[in-house]
């Protein structure tokens, strides 16, 4: 009989404990997934012309961080050295250290774009948020000739950077290259493309 009594209590206690433990889900986010950004090796224009993108270098580099270490300057006997005002003199050292994050930088050969006005698309695959800021192509000596679309300056996942060019009727190659960078938001993958534009031949 005692066994039965104990069993009853045990059963109720077990159910009560199970019932009392309310599970809340944790964060399903996977921190081990690395960002990727892979450019399609061929860029196309709306006119259907293909432009191969050729890598000239690829660098893997480790992120380096730093912090500033402050210390009181002391005599050999351990006494702090005071300045003229009687305050402690504090030294500052910048300490650099490497993180476990490795970033990948890929640079491509300069692509010479035709002199005619056209629109181009750089396709890529990605699993991350990315940005493709508009390159600075103007200066005091040359007006802007390369425009990329607002909608393609940032995004997420597989994407496309679209840009268009003005006609180059200056009679010379563009003096300043358009450097288009496409990089993941955490800056672990970056592609750098260089563009210049041919000029309209003089008839």
């Amino acid at each position: 009989m005692k066994k039965l009594l104990h069993l009853s209590f045990l059963m109720l206690a077990t159910v009560a404990i199970i019932a009392s433990c309310e599970e809340h889900p944790g964060n399903p986010g996977d921190f081990s997934v690395k960002c990727t950004l892979e450019l399609n090796p061929v860029m196309r224009s709306l006119k259907g012309v293909e432009y191969p993108l050729t890598q000239i270098r690829r660098i893997d580099s480790t992120f380096r961080y730093f912090y500033i270490e402050e210390d009181t300057i002391k005599y050999e006997n351990g006494e702090p050295i005071l300045d003229d005002s009687g305050n402690l003199i504090v030294s500052e050292d910048t300490i650099y250290y490497f993180s476990d994050i490795t970033a990948q930088f890929t640079e491509y050969e300069v692509v010479v774009l035709p002199w005619e006005m056209d629109t181009f698309e750089i396709m890529f695959k990605s699993n991350a948020r990315w940005a493709a800021n508009t390159p600075v192509t103007n200066s005091r000596t040359e007006s802007t000739w390369y425009y990329n679309y607002n909608s393609s300056t940032s995004g997420g996942g597989d994407g496309c950077v679209s840009f268009r060019t003005k006609s180059n009727t200056t009679g010379r190659m563009r003096g300043i290259e358009a450097v288009q960078e496409i990089y993941t938001r955490d800056s672990t993958v970056m592609a750098r493309l260089h563009f210049t534009q041919a000029y309209k031949p003089i008839e």
């Binding site: 809340h24 889900p25 944790g26 964060n27 399903p28 986010g29 996977d30 921190f31 997934v33 690395k34 960002c35 990727t36 990605s126 699993n127 991350a128 948020r129 997420g156 996942g157 993941t184 938001r185 955490d186 672990t188």
Partner: peptide
């Protein structure tokens, strides 16, 4: 924002971890 809401779509590189396969 409750812990259940963490199961939302996020790309790789998110500070809260990637969750784009089947959020």
């Amino acid at each position: 924002l409750f812990t259940e809401h963490l199961d939302y779509f996020r790309y790789a590189g998110s500070e809260l971890g990637a969750n784009y396969e089947d959020p």
